[in-house]
Design a protein around this nucleic acid. Structure first.
Length: 291
DNA sequence: ACCGCACCCTGAGCGC
DNA sequence: TGCGCTCAGGGTGCGG
């Protein structure tokens, strides 16, 4: 699911049900590479801690705990972080949706894809982390320690300026889209918003980075800010799995200009949107509006 | 240093 | 109905 807007919306909406509460119990699925920190360690370290802060770093969420340690989460492709008092069909598989009565669907049952459950000392809702494909990550950070991946993150895509972006493109042969997806260059951009920002900038995704002009980098930075801010405003993109912690779908999927619109007319010029594989990911663009 | 590729995992949707 | 195929918003690690 999640790119910067979805992670930021998740942060904003899960913060009120996380910060200030003391963890009483931690439940997990068996060890897997989803747990960078093994479940047994996680249980031992988290119990009794209260959450003092929740921040977003690129696509990561970092919860600071009362002893100074940290709980680092990445939602991967299909990660869902939510409180267990909410309802959404996106929290069920299609088969579960088909087999369950509407009444049964109205309360979430912890399933095999729910890898982490945090229960708290107060009577409020539990916080759950569900992830069908297990590309997400749960990492406990000892007090005072950071994580190599965090140290390598580039500038946050929401606030990046055109000039540093232009500098980063020099002497790079990779497609401009692949550069935007490189988290050590820009933190937070994923496949949807890379395509959308390049559309607004009028630049084709396959252009070699070194051949993108300074003026175009300015437009790409503007495009990134535009699509990321607007997506946060509308609650992110809910295309297959994404659901906000309060169970709400996002709205930005309705505002897409190119992503997953292959063959459909460009909303500006009518030309059919094209799909092309770039860096093993699908890229979408308007052949007339983007050069 | 950089680039392309294989790989991690599960499910949905398609044509036959 | 079921099989085999492709596709999917993520990132890492390897060899060239």
């Amino acid at each position: 699911m999640p790119e910067l807007p979805e992670v930021e919306v998740t942060r904003r909406r899960i913060e009120p049900v996380l910060v200030g509460r003391r963890i009483e119990a931690v439940e997990t699925t068996p060890p897997s590479y989803f747990f960078v920190t093994p479940p047994t360690t996680l249980r031992r370290r988290l119990r009794g801690q209260s959450v003092s802060k929740l921040e977003r770093l690129g696509k990561y969420l970092l919860a600071t705990l009362s002893d100074g340690s940290g709980l680092l989460l990445h939602l991967g492709m299909t990660g869902q972080l939510f409180s267990d008092n909410v309802v959404s069909p996106r929290l069920l598989s299609a088969t579960a949706r088909a087999s369950l009565s509407p009444e049964a669907q109205a309360s979430f049952e912890i399933d095999a894809h729910t890898h982490l459950v945090l229960r708290f000392e107060d009577a409020g809702p539990a916080v759950l982390f569900r992830d069908v494909r297990k590309f997400g990550k749960v990492i406990w950070l000892p007090p005072g320690e950071t994580h190599p991946r965090l140290a390598r993150l580039g500038a946050d895509a929401l606030t990046v300026a055109g000039d540093p972006l232009f500098q980063a493109t020099r002497r790079r042969k990779v497609a401009i889209k692949s550069l935007l997806l490189d988290q050590s260059v820009l933190a937070g951009v994923g496949n949807i918003y890379a395509d959308e920002a390049l559309y607004w900038a009028g630049v084709r995704p396959g252009r070699r980075s070194a051949r993108v002009t300074r003026a175009e980098c300015m437009r790409i930075a503007d495009g990134l800010r535009r699509v990321l801010e607007r997506s946060i405003e509308t609650g992110g993109s809910s295309i297959s799995d994404y659901v906000a912690p309060d169970g709400q779908d996002g709205g930005y999927q309705d505002e897409r200009r190119v992503y997953a619109r292959t063959g459909q007319p460009c909303k500006a010029c009518g030309a059919p949107i094209r799909r092309k594989v770039i860096g093993q990911r699908s890229a979408h663009y308007c052949p007339r509006c983007q050069v």
